[in-house]
Design a protein around this nucleic acid. Structure first.
Lengths: 164, 164
DNA sequence: CGGATGAATGTTATAGTGTTGCATTATCAT
DNA sequence: ATGATAATGCAACACTATAACATTCATCCG
């Protein structure tokens, strides 16, 4: 029904393993530990290019034989977020792997409402616009949430129109 | 402790009543009904320039003698949102009055993490940047969520620095 | 007026999301 | 090894939101 891969085609296996390697390196250099649980959760998230809910992750962990309860998942997600390895998408109550974990940044997302794929944007233009508008209000920005819902190019072709 | 008024000073009573009048007019012209309950909820929201949770609203309604349960509040909020009279702030699970109900638009918000006041921006610059970046990805935008958390000018003066 | 109709609200129950607090286990440096 | 610290297990709970059905309210038409 919906495509498990992002609409921008790529080698998914390579994409996951390179993300895992990058995560490992990041944790080493920061003196934190990418434990088995954390790696497991990160990999789950990366295997899906669409956002996963905390309870989705929980269910998979339990299928995999680990006895996990909600706090386990949320703590793990907190860690991964603090490392910049995953982002939380507030409008979906869900989590997605960060494509640029090395750079500290807020996430800017294009969310397809048809196939649920999410594309993370570098979004320098948006960031600049935000800081410009904030500056006009003398507001100092800590973090910005930008979540753009709509239709990705692939789905627009498949479902070209909804007009009556 | 925290200031119940927005950091941009204004005549709050007038601001609330003009919002209520505008809401009344909007509903009349669209053939919908601004019932007592709906007006009550909208006024509650407007009286606070900070976002209110659905259960905050519920509590006040019950204090005011109405026997309300969650669906009552959520349905009312759905109506007010569909009229563009209030916005939901996803990152806070809370609701705030819309300052431009006549224009259809997404909300762009500056959220002060210290005093909880929220300022809604017209944000043409941000909107343009979003559409430009989306267009580059051939993504068609339906709705965008922009929620900028940080410190408002008033709070920056009060709590000038958190650096050690 | 009075009944029919549809919109709005009341009511009960439940689903979904996230947190607190404390017990236990694993890891690491001495 | 041992003691300190980080990570995970576990139980209970708080907060946010929706489903399904019953009742009340407003309006329109005869």
């Amino acid at each position: 029904m919906t495509n498990p891969l992002p609409y921008r085609p790529h080698n998914h296996h390579a994409c996951v393993s390179s993300a895992m390697e990058e995560a490992q390196a990041l944790c080493q250099s920061s003196g934190t530990r990418l434990t088995r649980l954390r790696a497991q959760v990160l990999e789950l998230i990366w295997q899906s290019h669409r956002p996963l809910g905390a309870y989705d992750i929980l269910a998979v962990l339990n299928e995999q034989g680990r006895k996990a309860a909600p706090p386990t998942v949320y703590r793990t997600l907190d860690f991964l977020q603090s490392m910049g390895l995953v982002h939380r998408i507030a409008s979906l109550n869900a989590f997605i792997g960060c494509t640029q974990p090395s750079h500290s940044h807020s996430g800017y997302f294009l969310i397809c409402e048809h196939c649920q794929n999410v594309l993370e944007l570098p979004a320098d233009g948006i960031r600049q616009a935000i800081h410009r508008e904030a500056a006009e209000q003398a507001f100092s920005v800590r973090e910005s949430t930008v979540e753009i819902a709509g239709t990705c190019p692939a789905c627009r072709q498949t479902q070209p129109s909804k007009s009556p």
